[in-house]
Write a protein that binds this DNA or RNA. Sequence first.
DNA 1: GTGATTTGACCAGA
DNA 2: TCTGGTCAAATCAC
Length: 379
Amino acid sequence: MEETLHLILQGCKLAKDLESNLGNLANQPEILSKSCEEIITIFAIAKQRLINNAQEAAALFTQREAQTSLQQQQQQQSTGDPSLQEWLKYGTVISQAMGMIQQQYLAAGGKTAPFEISEMGGKNMMEGSSSAASSRLKSSMGGEIQAMDVSDSGRASSSSSQRSRRRKDDDEKHIMTVPAPQMGNTDLPPEDNYTWRKYGQKEILGSRYPRAYYRCTHQKMYNCHAKKQVQRLDNDFNTFEVTYIGQHTCHMSSTAPSIPPPPPPPLAQDHHHQMMMATQSMVTQQSTPASSSSIPLGRWLSMEFSLGTSASGGSAGSSGGAGGSTTTAATRYGRDVVDYPVVADMADVMFNSGSSSSNSMDFIFPSVDDKWETGDKKN
DNA sequence: GTGATTTGACCAGA
DNA sequence: TCTGGTCAAATCAC
């Protein structure tokens, strides 16, 4: 265990070194890339060890990682170095991707995700929602995600009214916290690869921020009763608490058909293993120096950078909903918003990467070299 | 014109 | 009675 921690610390040191020299290396992407790969490799090894250990060890690892991310964020904010902002964006992309992975994982009925999850079950939904919001502290940067698996079976509901208003339904509810987008329009709820239609918003007693109510856009077409509620945490403006209610019965992604719906069907224990493998697969691809398909951090950075530019350049193409990769909000306010579908695709590939294709990352990063050049020119 | 969002009102459960 | 969840008309955006 100590060895693993030492590895992590070493990775942190290297990251700090890289950070301090980032200005000098800004025009040397190859060196940057190698440095990043080195860091990624170290963290990947450490992570692998932790995964192999007990959950206890994994929790400690995540804590360390979150601290590191937080430190980087704080340092970045204090320096204001634009090149470091790309570094930060990298973390944001990962965070977003992790968020979606988390959801995919929950969709698979998983109980323990490859990264941190705190699970709470058996309590009623409203308790979980409001009190948890005030008591749980989250990191908005590190991609920390907490999820509560809440099955609201406590109270029977008899809705006989024509309007069928059910305060307490029997649908499964999953509460999770996800970091808000740190660029673009941060008011938007996190992208989750489904299209939602907002049907209400309410001020919640004791909560600083209102709660927004969404239902599946295809509710009528597919009789899909999936819903979600989104609310900022009282103590953390940068974190959303998202409650998923019910399951998607719609099939909406033609481009990424293998994505399972977020609300979790209580199935397949094996998904945990698949998740682990998918995540590890990504790490491996990134961290294997010999692999030409590994993605240097510089490419991740440029990728994210291009995301930012494309968002302002015109994300009108992201509309259309049925593509399964945008929210209605993102569509509506797309001009200010980061183009999340790319991140969704990342998660998609990560979940479908399996072992079949070594070029899955090519799907995520089409012509990344060009994008690097684009980003470079930007600088 | 179509579909999404906003927002005040309504309703049901606690 | 209070509060959260939903409805639906008005409005907005494409």
